[in-house]
């Protein structure tokens, strides 16, 4: 199948070994039309690599969350295919999607403790609590909440709940973490801290984050690749690399490269919105 290369302005070729060139997830000609006739996505081609920190950026209605849900297997495609070239497939030919999902809300079960919430993915697969406990505690350790294993979600702040949600998504050590505007509901200080913590979790690891956001600055700070999307119908309009090394810190936020990237991404977003100004 021929692959259309969306980015005309793509400047970087990732340094990867030949075996890693097969994408982790490949979307080919993906369209999604809802029952009410809304065209959420139209003809989306996207190859998600491993590892990478990929952001999907665009205004509301551009279908960025829809892409995430389709990758997770929630809902059907109208046309096109989503392949997992590296995954094993079950007897019915469905890929064993190996992913974690973080929603905009923490989406915790209020009747379970922090430990019980992070145990969920294992519990649903029939892994005993005792067997899973070391990995659960390790995941909580990584998000800095080991001391709160016995607390109930209502006892935690918004940022802490989000960390629990991230720990739950990472506890199975998935190859891709899908995040749907995860920090949009948090205050800016908490958001910056969680951004840094997320980068620290991801840095040097061999896995992929697909991060949906509508913030240019957040996407530039976090990502090594940004997909800019346009609405009505939802489609990809730019694929921009952010060639800054990790780890990134406050120095990156004030660097010339950061500003240049923000300018470039903003311009792409503005082009994407051309003709839609009256709607925003």
């Amino acid at each position: 199948m021929p692959r259309r290369n969306v980015p005309p302005d793509r400047t970087r070729t990732p340094v990867t070994s030949p075996a890693a060139k097969r994408p982790l997830v490949a979307l080919e000609g993906v369209s999604k039309t809802y029952l009410n006739g809304t065209v959420a996505l139209s003809g989306v081609d996207l190859a998600i690599r491993r590892p990478e920190f990929l952001s999907l950026l665009g205004p509301s209605g551009c279908g960025k969350s829809t892409i995430l849900r389709l990758i997770a297997g929630l809902g059907d495609l109208t046309t096109g295919r989503i392949e997992w070239p590296r995954a094993t497939h079950d007897h019915r030919g469905r890929p064993q999607r190996d992913l974690g999902f973080v929603f905009q809300e923490p989406t915790l079960m209020p009747w379970r403790t922090v430990f019980g919430n992070v145990y969920l993915p294992f519990r649903l697969k029939g892994v005993s609590k005792r067997e899973a406990a070391p990995r659960i505690m390790a995941a909580l350790e990584r998000v800095g909440l080991a001391a709160f294993a016995g607390a109930y979600p209502r006892e935690l702040s918004g940022g802490m709940k989000m960390r629990v949600s991230i720990a739950r998504a990472l506890v199975t050590q998935p190859s891709v973490l899908l995040m749907d505007e995860p920090f949009a509901a948090l205050d800016e200080i908490t958001r910056h801290r969680l951004n840094d913590d997320l980068l620290a979790l991801w840095a040097g690891q061999d896995w992929t984050v697909v991060f949906v956001t509508h913030s240019v600055y957040e996407s530039v700070y976090l990502s090594d690749r940004i997909i800019v999307m346009a609405p009505r119908p939802g489609r990809i309009v730019a694929d921009i690399a952010v060639d800054a090394p990790y780890p990134r810190g406050e120095a990156f936020r004030t660097s010339a490269l950061y500003n240049e990237c923000c300018r470039q991404v903003s311009a792409a977003l503005r082009d994407a919105m051309a003709g839609h100004e009256h709607e925003e």
């Binding site: 297997g73 929630l74 999607r97 992913l99 999902f101 929603f103 989406t107 969920l120 649903l124 697969k125």
Partner: peptide, 14 residues
């Protein structure tokens, strides 16, 4: 029941 929790259960193949 929270719809996104239902989604999560589906993702984990419940």
């Amino acid at each position: 029941a929270d719809h996104n929790l239902l989604n999560l259960f589906q993702i984990y193949g419940a």
